[in-house]
Design a protein around this nucleic acid. Sequence first.
DNA 1: ATGATCTCCTGAGCGC
DNA 2: TGCGCTCAGGAGATCA
Length: 276
Amino acid sequence: MPELPEVETIRRGLQRELTGRTVTAVEARTESGRRGAKRLRAPSPRSLAGLEGQSVLDARRHGKYLMLGLSDGTLLVHLGMTGKLLFSEPGEPERAHTHLVLELDDGRLLSFVDPRRFGLLKLYARDDAMPDLDGFGPDALATDFTPEHLAQQLASCSAPLKAFLMDQSRVAGLGNIYVCEALWRTGLSPKRMARRTPKNKIALLHQSILDVLQDSLAQGGTSFNDYVDHIGQPGKFVAQLAVYDREGQPCLRCGVAVKRITQANRSTFYCPACQK
DNA sequence: ATGATCTCCTGAGCGC
DNA sequence: TGCGCTCAGGAGATCA
């Protein structure tokens, strides 16, 4: 389940391995679009065949979106739940659920593999509008995500803190795991209404978000079943999770059993004793 | 306008 | 061993 640290880990790998490479051939196994079987989540404004001949200039990220800067456009990538970008050598057996294979000028292949097909691949030409990120809040690790921004957003939201932090229009990059972990670190209940966050906790919440993301990034992210980076390495942060997927186990701070509840049809894990 | 709910999808894990 | 059920969740669509 790639959230910001996992996507950033992949971005760094792509920046290192893909920058300067040219796509020499494109094989789309499935088309992006909504109708019919075996399609990804959203239609691409340009045929992915347009990748052929383009060079990769850089790899950027906003929230959980990856943007590969090309010689004439941008390839926008969202990994959804189970999307992977994997390098391979020619002749290696192709993995199931491969949607796109790019041949590179150094002989390697870069494949987009996504069993659950929540992922998204969109090719934009240089002058195309890229509406996907409209309305997104600042990236959680960018300098414009400040305590002041957080305070202002909190004040205008009557949803619970869990839903607030999951909302990419408030701050981009957090998902279920890091929202649960950041709230635990701050000692705030996921059920607390966002605008009722105590003023003296806002700076701490902001810092907890940065800390949990940085800590995870330092471990290459969190892996359960699906996530691996571009060379197939799982992340190691799962060993440091305080509440996520720890229902019934003792809170690392106070020893009370971690509780699991459902919010917006998603699991929330928290300590009922020390998260207020 | 805002927040809550539904939807897409497949593999893993579980009980029988 | 194998079948069928439930669950996981990002984010856009839809509903209240």
